[in-house]
């Protein structure tokens, strides 16, 4: 059910990622100011953008869950936030490496986007502990959806507040809006972002398919083992939603 089209999607993703990385290293020119190190930009920024969109998507599925009560929406929301957290770790680490390379420090508070991203990450890092500490699965899904919606609305507000707080914005070679980027850099950046988005969607569908298959398998096992002594409740508790 969730696995449909996954193969095609995976192939497209592989092609796009390989293409994007090839463009990064062979097509896009070296940045006039920052030089070779600016190549991290094509990895770091798409990671961050896709993670943020994933967080917001988690909120949107949270709304859908609250409106319909369909547990699959809860699963979608959970997987989206879960994957976004992984991408966010990647964005923070690559951003830190970039900062070390070009400014000589592992962390800088002058970069509003980086700081807001850390705050958003800290907030979403509570998502799994929150789920984990609620036992009733129906309530867990409901509360997680509420959290996802609150946090989803928080993302843009937070970015606005932090950006305003930093009156001194670092002299940026590249504005992420792409206004001042040379066209070949912009195309490379766009392809990288699309590739990262495709990777996200592929992994999202992949994980959904995997989780869904596991649930059905477990349900089957329970039905088969019904009436026998061999039945044991799921020994491992997890924060993941159950169907």
């Amino acid at each position: 059910m969730f696995g449909r089209g996954l193969k095609t999607l995976s192939l497209i993703t592989v092609a796009l990622i390989v293409g994007a990385f090839a463009m990064v290293f062979f097509y896009a020119p070296n940045d006039a100011d920052q030089g070779f190190i600016q190549k991290i930009f094509y990895l770091h920024v798409p990671l961050a953008i896709v993670a943020l969109f994933g967080f917001v998507a988690g909120g949107v599925y949270g709304i859908k869950y609250l409106r319909t009560g369909d547990r699959l929406h809860d699963l979608r929301s959970y997987v989206a936030i879960h994957l976004s957290l992984i991408l966010a770790v990647g964005a923070l680490v690559t951003g830190s490496i970039w900062a070390r390379g070009s400014w000589g420090v592992w962390w800088t508070w002058d970069e509003p986007t980086l700081v807001s991203f850390l705050i958003v990450f800290l907030l979403y890092a509570c998502y799994q502990p929150l789920r984990f500490s609620i036992e009733d699965p129906e309530r867990q899904a409901r509360y997680a959806a509420v959290f996802a919606i609150i946090a989803g609305a928080f993302v843009p507000l937070n970015f606005m507040a932090v950006r305003m707080a930093e009156s001194l914005v670092h002299p940026r070679v590249l504005s992420t809006t792409g206004g001042s980027m040379p066209s070949d850099m912009r195309i490379t950046f766009l392809v990288s972002t699309v590739a990262m988005a495709c990777l996200f969607i592929t992994l999202w569908k992949y994980e959904l398919a995997s989780k869904h298959a596991t649930f059905r398998l477990r349900a089957l096992k329970r039905r088969l083992a019904d009436g026998e002594d061999a039945w044991t409740p799921n020994p491992r508790r997890s924060a993941a939603p159950t169907l």
């Binding site: 907030l123 509570c126 502990p129 929150l130 707080a165």
Partner: peptide, 16 residues
């Protein structure tokens, strides 16, 4: 545990 963990990041824009 949950209250400070969620409330503190959420109130960052307020504090700023």
């Amino acid at each position: 545990l949950i209250v400070p963990l969620i409330a503190l990041p959420l109130s960052v824009p307020l504090v700023i």
